[in-house]
Design a protein around this nucleic acid. Structure first.
Lengths: 211, 211
DNA sequence: GACGGATTTCGAATGCCGTTCGAAACCGGT
DNA sequence: ACCGGTTTCGAACGGCATTCGAAATCCGTC
């Protein structure tokens, strides 16, 4: 009964993820192509997931979980290194934005799934529950708040949340609007080197948390 | 011969702009609907613009021109007010991000056209020339560089461009990922008041340009 | 080992979509 | 009134996601 623990449901998710990674644009992803790659038929998508949208959402959620696990692992590492003192600000920021940057530059990662997913959410009605559930899930971002508060105790929760949100915006701009970033920086920054990009981002975000 | 100065070409652009503003999602925009609203037929779109994509691009370009004119006018005002001294940093930042913020909050503005356009560019192959022409056009952003350089002479052009790009990322996050911004700030900031939002953004962006 | 109900797969059909194309209509100058 | 160029139209095309009833498969029970 519409189970997604089914074998072909799994194969559909894998095929969808793979196709999204290869796809240059979202329009390259069609139910027929997914079906072929999964050795199934298009109707299997509707049967197991309800719609193609929901399949993509399920795949995106899976990828998000991997990315967030990496983020939180880096955060924990940063905290443990200095405990019981507050963690190093630069390291916390790198934990927040680093995984996204690295994934977006790693051709073997599933990062394209996430960017295609957000653009799909905008193309279709964003309010749909299976979108909101994923987009509004900011647990993994909230985890950064208490530690940033220890670093900048003069900021309240709203200030911290606002700055966190701004940092994520900078991250998105760099990972998703690459050509604009290139032009504005005169092609003088090596945007393929994650360490350089992360250092540049820290350089800009850290001052938000200083007096 | 495929002219876009034609009367029905104009009516198609107006219809497309209007529909994009009303549209909750990009999928609500169809060639047939545009045609009906413009008292024409779908084939008129192909005839005058080549494709629906190119019609949307033409409309977006028109809206961008209006937005950028407003930006540059504010910049000029900021420069003139202090000349020959360097302009006020906060005022320059407000000129950069203010119009986007105000438009995005003004229900009578055509801001939805721009967000729908960028999401369309992501859905289809972004490299297409009629996208790149608009997306990579950063003339109006470059105009900010020399004035920011006078304010922060210790930064070189690349540093300034990078910070400009980051500021635009923050702007996009606030205007386009509203629900995330709401959640992260605990619904404690009145995101409907442009002055409050702009002040919050200045508060975060200005430190990037200070020592 | 065969049966029978639930689950899964399949393939044809449906109704949208953007676009194409040839014919009709329209236009301004002769 | 005619005519060449321009514009409009409507029917058709291929592709899309999805629906649905029929086939097939699976599995606990007899």
């Amino acid at each position: 009964m519409h189970g997604r623990t089914n074998l072909t449901a799994m194969r559909l998710m894998d095929a969808c993820e793979h196709l999204l990674c290869e796809a240059e644009a979202l329009e390259d992803l069609t139910a027929r192509r997914i079906a072929i790659e999964a050795h199934a038929t298009p109707s299997a998508i509707s049967y197991h997931f309800g719609s193609q949208e929901e399949l993509v959402a399920a795949v995106a959620e899976r990828v998000y979980r991997r990315l967030n696990a990496e983020r939180l692992s880096l955060l924990r590492k940063a905290v443990d290194r200095r405990a019981p003192e507050p963690p190093d600000l630069d390291e916390v920021i790198a934990a927040l934005v680093g995984p996204s940057i690295r994934w977006s530059l790693d051709p073997t990662s599933s990062y394209p799934v996430l960017s295609h997913f957000t653009s799909m959410a905008k193309t279709h009605r964003e309010r749909a529950p299976h979108y909101r559930r994923i987009i509004d899930n900011v647990q993994h971002h909230r985890a950064f708040v208490p530690h940033l508060k220890r670093i900048a105790p003069w900021l309240d929760d709203v200030d911290i949340g606002w700055r966190l949100n701004c940092a994520l915006g900078i991250r998105s701009q760099v990972t998703r609007s690459r050509s604009r970033t290139e032009v504005l920086t005169n092609y003088s920054i090596d945007l393929d080197d994650p360490d350089i990009v992360i250092a540049r981002m820290v350089e800009v975000i850290a001052p938000m948390f200083r007096r």
